[in-house]
């Protein structure tokens, strides 16, 4: 329900990170009512398979991962669904990497380490374009 009592369609969230701690942390800490976690993947390859299966609207994406890295995965997911909203959540703090991720189709960038508030602010900002 929104503040006027009208029902709000939930958005499906997929979490992609090779760290189990970070996957669990994002799932536990995200407080956006509209978001419903539909899956968590540990690398880019798993993420693509899960994306096809669960059709998420929103994705949090790590960059440094085995198998397929986050930049390649962003590009692949956007090619599968150009409307998907992707928040990159990465320790890679240089501007060039953030710019590259955005150019490949990501919609936002949150640098690790992050607080719960920073995560929720970043997700809320991402959803303003939804």
């Amino acid at each position: 329900m929104d503040t006027n009592g009208a029902s709000v369609t939930p958005l499906k969230l997929m979490i992609v990170d090779d760290s189990n701690i970070i996957r669990r942390r994002i799932e536990r800490s995200q407080q956006i009512d509209r978001l419903e976690v539909v899956g968590a993947a540990g690398n880019g390859r798993e993420a693509v398979a899960m994306f096809l299966r669960t059709q998420p609207d929103v994705v949090t994406m790590d960059l440094t991962m085995p198998e397929m890295d986050g930049i390649a995965c962003v590009e692949k997911l956007v090619s599968l669904n150009p409307k998907v909203l992707i928040l990159v959540v990465s320790a890679l703090a240089d501007k060039a990497t953030a710019v590259e991720a955005i150019e490949k189709g990501a919609n936002g960038f949150l640098c690790k380490p992050f607080t719960d508030r920073q995560l929720n602010d970043a997700l809320a900002e991402l959803l303003t374009v939804a």
Binding site: S19, T64, L92, A93, D94, C111, K112, P113
Partner: peptide, 21 residues
């Protein structure tokens, strides 16, 4: 084990702010 790896990953990744891509 995941945590000790993530700490190393985060501090090293953040260093790219100064060391570059």
């Amino acid at each position: 084990k995941d945590l000790v790896g993530e700490v190393a990953n985060t501090i090293s990744g953040n260093a790219r702010r100064d060391f570059g891509k």
